[in-house]
Amino acid sequence: MNAVLKPSPQDDVIQVRNLVNRFGTQTVHEHLDLDVRRGEILGVVGGSGTGKSVLLRSIVGLRRPTSGQVHVFGQDLLSLPPEKRSQLERRFGVLFQNGALFSSLNIVENVAMPLIEHGGLTRPDAQTLAGVKLALAGLPAGAETKYPSELSGGMVKRAALARSLALDPEILFLDEPTAGLDPISAAAFDQLILTLRDALGLTVFLVTHDLDTLYTICDRVAVLSQKKVLVVGPLDEVAQYNDPWVQSYFHGPRGRAAEEAHEVK
């Protein structure tokens, strides 16, 4: 069990080098570099359409980049043989921006599926555990047997979060997890991620527009702009970076409000 605690020789669990992503003639990423360290919560921010979701998809191996390397746990997912790749993917939890719940399964079954397929649990055990995960994600009791099309937007987010947490992944990829949550739930969500990170040593890749989340839980922040990672570092350093977008993001009216709220605490 000490393996988790020992300082590993490879401290960057995700390494992105020279990443280029193009859709037709549109270039989304141009020579993008990014490292994510083991056990950190990295907040990824950037304007709409700057390619945060595309970056996430490239890292988890859902999109073959136009060029460049992406290494996760020191391995290139896209060049691995299928079984090896599947083993590696089991150590990921991904929350997609639109939830991506399986529409023909109810929520408990959605969360139980990875537990049955990869965790080796029996169906009743998996469903019990899935219920706990759903409760952990803050889903109100009684919603477990509903189908995704019968859920509210925030409930979809929570159910998707529960599914991404199902296997206690080592790296958690979250695409705007707090969008559509009320502020109280969003704060509870922040606490949950912190607790899990501390207890399980998770690494979290968190795409967000939520300034409060950035101030509360992120160890480092990466700003995506001009087709690359413009700056990455602790929040207060990033906030000082001399770029018009960064300045108006962190020092605009909302940025200031979040900062003040954080300082009061």
Binding site: G131, A135, A141, T195, D198
Partner: peptide, 19 residues
């Protein structure tokens, strides 16, 4: 960290009834 995890899960499970 482990204590916090136990307590978080404890709170969640208090809300959750087995269907």
């Amino acid at each position: 960290a482990q204590r916090a995890l136990l307590q978080t899960i404890g709170l969640a499970m208090a809300d959750y009834q087995r269907p």
